[in-house]
Design a binder for these strands. Structure first.
Lengths: 190, 190
DNA sequence: TACGGTGATGAGACCAAGTCCCATCACTGT
DNA sequence: ACAGTGATGGGACTTGGTCTCATCACCGTA
């Protein structure tokens, strides 16, 4: 069904990351990304609604991964157990071989405020997906959104640590440690 | 120091809200907003970096209000007490007379995804301001960011309820109730 | 082999957001 | 009266993003 070379979307995404690292996000035009991928500007916007979105391709998969992990957790699992299962599932994506790529991507995001803003949207969407999955389990609402928000915070912290220079541990380990630290901090609130 | 009419920034903000309500956010150009305010398009972007920002004028004041309330809380105040004081301070801004205006503004934001995204950024900034203020009080970091995140969530929920059709209560009352509900939900996590 | 249908692409016109530069105007103090 | 200051107007310019139409490769079928 493709025309010439297949995987247009992936070619666009990797061309974009290359160019962002070479010239910076703002100094790279959508037309240049398309050109490096051997495509036209109009084709770029057929695959990505935004110039920003080209860096957030796997987000839908992540949402489904988290949601399915929570939905599929055993009935005996508490809300914290369920979101813990979601963090385990995340380790499927954040594997050691992908760390370099995630680091590059994150460096680009850190360098531009539009991208950081989009990242916030993605995190909020992920938290909403987790809250939805928890509600499907029968968890009622202050608790469901709270657990989702805690998990989102743990995920953010774990992601930062996992990308950072000092750490080589498994993503799931870091994430669980962060989630546990947040649970413990609950006792320090008053 | 102004040239003709003063308060150019306020005129732009209210002209923008009017036009957004009349024609919708996307169907309103920055040039049209400026024209209704009796100004030029270039002057609009001198006062607001974004077309979106014209709806988020008071955000800096809110950040300072929250930060100062936390910094100024008595030494004996727990982290939850301190963010509770911030929610009290918010009632200074969310007064009954402003409810209609906040409702209009919120209706515009709800109708456009770019604006919702910007709203997330503003909430994250507010949470960061609260976490900073807590750290200034000596609260260490998993606890500080957790308390700030909880307060941000309570603020979001309270804001939604206060803007909603059924409720006429004081903002501080609603916010404290929401914060308390989140604290209580902590026990339901596992 | 010829043919029509389908889906992805190329090309370009077009609009609005946002940047930049420079001239201009009102106001202030001397 | 005069120069300095700060906000404004105006317009050129780049780029993100939309839209439309023609084109091309592929696929099934007669």
């Amino acid at each position: 069904m493709g025309r010439w070379e297949p995987n247009a979307r992936e070619r666009l995404a990797s061309s974009a990351l290359e160019l962002f690292l070479e010239r910076g996000y703002e100094s790279t035009t959508a037309a240049e990304i398309a050109e490096r991928a051997g495509l036209a500007k109009s084709t770029f916007f057929r695959h990505f609604t935004d110039k920003r979105e080209v860096l957030f391709g796997g987000q839908d998969a992540l949402n489904h991964l988290f949601g399915d992990a929570i939905t599929g957790a055993p009935d005996s699992a508490t809300p914290i157990d369920a979101v813990g299962a979601a963090l385990d599932a995340a380790a499927t994506i954040f594997r050691p071989e992908r760390r370099a790529w995630v680091q590059q991507r994150q460096a680009v995001i850190a360098g531009n405020s539009d991208l950081r803003e989009r990242e916030l949207l993605k995190r909020a969407t992920l938290a909403a997906a987790m809250a939805d999955a928890l509600r499907k389990r029968g968890v009622t609402d202050p608790t469901a959104s709270l657990a989702a928000e805690l998990a989102s915070l743990a995920f953010r912290n774990a992601h930062t640590l996992w990308v950072g220079p000092t750490n080589q541990r498994d993503f799931a380990d870091i994430a669980h440690q962060e989630l546990h630290a947040l649970r413990a901090a609950t006792a320090e609130l008053d």
